[in-house]
Design a protein around this nucleic acid. Sequence first.
DNA 1: CTGAAAGCGCTTACAG
DNA 2: CTGAAAGCGCTTACAG
Lengths: 363, 363
Amino acid sequence: MRWPRKWGSKLSKPSRTVVAKPTVNDIARVAGVSLATVDRVLNERPGVRSVTIRKVQAAIDQLGYVRDTAAANLARQKTYRFVFVLPDWKGQFLASLEQGIAETILNAPQNRTEVRTIRVPNHDHTQLAATLGALEPSKVDGLAIMAKETPLIRDAIADLRKRGIPVVSLVTDQPNSDRDHFVGIDNIAAGRTAGRLLGRFTGGQRGKVVVVITNKQSRDMIERRHGFDQVVGADFPNLDPLPSVEGQEDPAHTEQVTLRALRENPDAIGIYSVGASVQGIARAIAAAGLPHRPVLVDHELTENSAALLRAGVVDAVITQNTGHLARSAMRVLRAKCDKTPVIESQENIRIEIVIRENLPSMK
Amino acid sequence: MRWPRKWGSKLSKPSRTVVAKPTVNDIARVAGVSLATVDRVLNERPGVRSVTIRKVQAAIDQLGYVRDTAAANLARQKTYRFVFVLPDWKGQFLASLEQGIAETILNAPQNRTEVRTIRVPNHDHTQLAATLGALEPSKVDGLAIMAKETPLIRDAIADLRKRGIPVVSLVTDQPNSDRDHFVGIDNIAAGRTAGRLLGRFTGGQRGKVVVVITNKQSRDMIERRHGFDQVVGADFPNLDPLPSVEGQEDPAHTEQVTLRALRENPDAIGIYSVGASVQGIARAIAAAGLPHRPVLVDHELTENSAALLRAGVVDAVITQNTGHLARSAMRVLRAKCDKTPVIESQENIRIEIVIRENLPSMK
DNA sequence: CTGAAAGCGCTTACAG
DNA sequence: CTGAAAGCGCTTACAG
């Protein structure tokens, strides 16, 4: 039985000297320099003559060297110190995200990553900007931020990047900032998915659809509603989606506005919860005493939405895996720190559809 | 800003001496032995007096030591050599799985894992058993196998395990063998998911459902069909699922049997493809000239099924991520080699639902 | 601008 | 049954 060479056909060019697995020592030997110099070139450290750099580069290319990150980190005794800034909402989605972050650390200590999670009131741009401003490059190696898009935050992110701290936006994007990466789903596509499911599940009936949203400013919310309207407008003329009512991250308030909407539209056949408290909506449905159970499509799988799926109150949940979000954010930040390429296909967060039958057994 | 101690409240007991991050050197010092002895105890190597073992164990517990696997692997110069045995079908699912395996290796060379994939005719139990029998413990560190469940294979797996090679079953389980782990989805739940979607998508109409299966012996197929019948039987009395017709892993044959089924049941309102060639089914639908387009639910997202989703021929695809399957199999095998615990929550392969709107942008 | 040596946390022969 | 020393692939002060 023959084992594949690590550096097989895909990587080797005809002229390449193939060593089983070239190391820094091989480079040093071939280039005729010391280990320290190889290291300087490898890590783009200053103070090397360009002739020397070229010699080392040539050796690297010739040997097809690939750095052993694990060994590098071991030697460097480097621990990546990341800060995650999240809204201070009390919902289960954020709790799950925070847990995902904690578990990532616990499960993979060999990644030498430490994380500090900061919850900041999302409406308070000033405090948020101040929090970001206080991050020191000497103490922080990367930032993941989930926040509304505002000029203040945009500038704070630009400032951080200028100070050399990589930044990824999380869950909701900051496309106009120069964040390094967005870790999250395509929210327009998520809204389209919700639209299609609600359209199919209502089975061609004619009727109104109540739309409950957290707030009308958050980019992810806007994008989802937009995608939803695209699909319903194009393919389900029988459905009449109403203007969004705002639940404001508060179950009681969500219940209240949903109940009012249902009372005003007792013939509603569907409810689209764009990101609101599904508990509040469920209570409103119970209180409204509708003639028929409306089809309910929600976002973000939590204990609450899972229980309501099982109970048959919620029909489908569009969700993103919080563990994946956490791990992806850390992988991307580590890659940025190491100036290593991000493997896009691996960082593509999926839009998941959950119904009662494919509920994960454990969270 | 204070950074969390790696060994914080969750892990430390009151009596524990907390070192920032204890290493083998700390253990050696506390236990009053040499590094070599610590290593022996850590790796359960023979030739240590039980008193010594106890001393070392005490130090380990006291310090709350967690082994640095990366450093261990570096020192060990260990590469894990795994064999993946797959059926020799030509379908895209297996191609994608094979690609997922290859990409896992390319993307994470620091895992020091090498994989050899062997395609074996699935119907030929003897050849399969011979292939497994030829695996030498000195050259193979783990096996992942996707194959029909037969006594011959069961025995071959037991034999491998006896020779010290960890085995995981992949995609379709071998529950009666003593494989270490099953990497794949719950196929009964996958079938239930298909049943629910087909039921909802047909919107309460009365009619027959054509069921096309690869073969009636494969465990994953049997389980899916079973789950499907459970849900349809319980919640969709309007639907009448027909006995399965077998496509035999062959598009042309699948087309033929599906076409026959559709001709015999021109009033069929749905088709459930349990694992058959969706291309063949699509061609049969086109050829049948049905009065209404049937709802079509399929398994395994491939280029073909994605194209048919986009074209509106397929309504939903139930799938499992081949990259996850590959990575999970390798993580589990590595854990078994290292006698390290498997993190169950991370290895739980999700049953994914894909419709046109949440199709991944790239495969 | 460059190099020799020590060390990261762990394992492996080799002695004893 | 136990230990001293070298080494895995890389980085880091410290000299020069």
